[in-house]
Simulated assay, not measured.
Amino acid sequence: MTDILQRRDHDGIATLTLNRPAARNALSLALMEALDAQLLAIGRDTSIHVVILAANGPAFCAGHDLREIRATPTRDAYEQVFATCSRLMLRMVRLPKPIIAQVHGVATAAGCQLVATADLAVAAESARFATPGVNIGLFCSTPMVALTRAVSHKASMEMLLTGELVPAHRARDLGLVNRVVPDTELAEATLALARQIADKSPLTVAIGKEAFYRQADMDIEAAYAYAAEVMTRNMLAHDAAEGIDAFLAKRAPVWAGR
């Protein structure tokens, strides 16, 4: 663990906190690598069922560290930054555990990408979101990948072309975040959601998350065929039998994660 990224585990929930407050948690190469490494470790940690992605300081994340990027203005350096970012986002999607973004302040550019990539997002009422790269001559092309998969094409194109800040309630209406809560209740509300999910069978949640993203890009016939196969495999799992038997017997299930 590094100073720029903090991790706290409690009751099956890992909270990863971006810790570059003076830089508004800009995604330096080191921060992206640290976050990727922690997600890789969490994916192998059977004690963790849910991840909360939070941040210290006045902002959630202001995007890439532009000062760092411009310090080495070479093609190789640029490729390294954006390849690392893409690897991190794919790690988030493929992690067999849900990730909840806990958003305060601003989430812009690659910071907005983090929110759009997370499986769920809870935002403070004062939070704002933007993909403002167009304002500085750098179109938010990698954030666009996540944004267009989270909100409609018209809404994402407006954000990408105008760079305007979107308030939290509008972000919820667009589907970028799930819930908007008073600023003072952000941590509590996010933790409550995480606990609700952490109580489920970790195997079932992992199966469901993988299936969700895989079927989303299939045509409807292929999606149903795939989903039927997934449900058959799920039904053969111990936790499915335990869950159904517990429901029928009106008792609480005891998950084994298999």
Rank of each mutant, 00 (worst) to 15 (best):
A225M: 13
A14T: 01
V230P: 04
C140Q: 04
A121V: 00
E68K: 05
H10Q: 12
E164K: 12
I197Y: 01
A124M: 04
Q102F: 09
V81Q: 03
T148E: 10
K209T: 06
V181E: 07
A249G: 09
T74I: 05
V230E: 03
R128K: 02
A34W: 03
A198E: 01
T142H: 06
H238K: 15
A252V: 09
A41Q: 14
D119H: 15
T204A: 11
S152I: 07
T204Q: 08
A118T: 00
W255Q: 04
A241S: 11
A206F: 07
E242V: 15
L174M: 15
S141W: 07
L66N: 10
E185A: 14
F247E: 02
D239A: 06
M89Y: 12
K97A: 11
T74M: 02
L88A: 07
L165Q: 12
L114R: 08
W255A: 05
P132A: 00
V254R: 12
L165A: 14
R195K: 13
M235D: 15
M1E: 08
S28M: 06
R251C: 01
M159L: 13
A194E: 03
L176A: 12
E188P: 03
N56T: 09
R233Y: 09
A34L: 07
D217W: 06
T142K: 11
L31E: 05
H238Q: 12
I52A: 03
L120I: 13
L236R: 14
A83I: 15
L138G: 01
F212G: 01
G243D: 02
A123N: 02
Q80L: 15
M231L: 15
L248C: 10
E68M: 05
Q215C: 11
D219G: 13
V177K: 09
D183Y: 04
V81C: 02
L35Y: 05
A155T: 15
A187L: 05
L138E: 03
R70K: 11
A192V: 03
R24W: 03
M231D: 13
G208A: 14
L165C: 09
G63M: 08
L35E: 01
L27I: 12
A118D: 00
Q80H: 13
M218Q: 13
A110I: 06
M231Q: 14
L186G: 04
A37V: 09
M235Y: 15
T84R: 08
A187C: 01
P182C: 11
L147N: 05
C140W: 01
R170T: 09
L40W: 14
I100K: 07
A116D: 00
A34G: 11
A189E: 10
T232F: 09
L90G: 14
D11L: 04
A71H: 13
A249C: 11
R87A: 15
L191I: 06
V181I: 06
A121F: 02
D76I: 10
V134P: 05
R8V: 11
A206G: 10
L31N: 08
L18Y: 03
P182M: 10
T190R: 01
N234I: 11
T232E: 12
V81A: 03
G133P: 09
T117H: 03
A54G: 14
I100P: 08
A127T: 02
Y213S: 04
L39S: 09
A228W: 06
M157N: 14
L165V: 10
S28D: 07
V230S: 05
V230R: 12
